[in-house]
Design a protein around this nucleic acid. Structure first.
Lengths: 205, 205
DNA sequence: CCTTTTTATTATACGCGTATAATTTATTGA
DNA sequence: TCAATAAATTATACGCGTATAATAAAAAGG
């Protein structure tokens, strides 16, 4: 029997915050933080600063998020959902699906480098990474558009382990293209679309 | 006329530290820091702790390094040179050069994830970008082992722009493989060697 | 009303990286 | 020997993330 269930019976003491209220507060914090992170960068913005903008004390933020990094994590999922919405549109409207998916995926990050930095380049040295939420079931589910596109590009049925290899490699290649363009921006990279084309043929041949 | 040149003429005031002495001090700090970083991790170890082990005040470290991250950068630079030394050995001793180069390159980063994070995942907004380092002439020079291996894998001469495309794509793919393994560590990725093999065939076919 | 209980919120404190101010040290010219 | 000077070193201070302690707020029971 957990606390939310206890709520139904009468209880002494100040009542715990409603789930709805809690969620509204989380959203408010996330929205303010998103704006600040995008404008001035994750490391530049402090919890004290977010609190000031919220009109609360710094420690109140910890009532709604375990840590500063957790606020960022919430923003990550928003970003991914937007991206995958685009990808699903592509998967329904294009015939040479894989190539278009690749282009869309890479181009999305190149068009939103600040998001890319938010998701894949959070302060390097500590060990908290993106995988904790990439592993969330609903996101794993979303990645299946790539798997379907790959298996769809073959006439005969493809073995699961070979599909996994192709899928993983394809995702690595796409991320690598985006990542190098963004992090090594001083170097004049070859056309991303052509590199995506190479990634596609590596997976479909 | 700079300060080192001024040293030759007589000057008032406490003399600046010798280059040799400065280098000895840098080495001493680096050695202590390397041990501590390896034992307890970069984030865990503080400048105050390093100073304590050195028997000096925290701020004295800043006489020899601009920032904590610069100490790590120095350590990384050493190991990075070792990577390219390895790669050059590989390029001289193996026939299927490209595949071995790829394996070596990726495996290096997987063996030194903390250095990967340092170089490729530093928050680009607030300070030094990877490209400033990657663009340094001696490092660009080092990357040519990949270009040579690619052009060497074709019997007839390859056009420069096509070579560039293949080289850039190959580097993107390799970095992507390493990057995804490191940043999305919770996901069980396909065998890196097999993905490298796909990257190789994408470039050589 | 007032106490009791439980939760939300805020205050305080710690160690961090490091900018800047203060101090010590090593040298030269008088 | 003794100021003057310049570099090395150290002390102090700031804002940071956040753990923990203190306080305020909201409900129920007397």
């Amino acid at each position: 029997m957990n606390k939310t269930e206890m709520k139904t019976t009468t209880m002494r003491g100040r009542p715990a915050i409603t789930d709805a209220k809690r969620q509204r507060m989380r959203n408010e914090i996330a929205n303010i933080a998103k704006q600040l992170f995008q404008d001035e960068g994750y490391t530049t913005i402090s919890m004290r600063r977010i609190a000031r903008e919220m009109g609360c004390s710094p420690m109140t933020l910890y009532q709604y998020y375990n840590a500063k990094i957790d606020i960022l994590r919430t923003l990550w999922s928003d970003v991914f959902n937007e991206l995958f919405d685009e990808l699903e549109v592509v998967s329904r409207t294009h015939t040479n699906m894989l190539h278009c998916l690749g282009i869309t995926y890479v181009q999305y990050w190149l068009d939103h480098t600040e998001y890319y930095r938010l998701v894949f380049m959070t302060d390097g040295v500590n060990q908290s990474d993106v995988s904790t939420f990439i592993d969330s079931p609903e996101l794993v589910q979303r990645f299946s558009v790539f798997a379907l596109a790959i298996s769809g590009s073959f006439s005969e049925k493809i073995e699961p382990e070979e599909l996994k290899l192709k899928l993983d490699a394809f995702l690595c290649f796409l991320n690598g293209i985006a990542h190098n363009q963004i992090t090594i921006s001083g170097y004049s990279w070859a056309d991303p679309d052509k590199m995506v084309a190479m990634a596609v043929s590596a997976v479909t041949d």
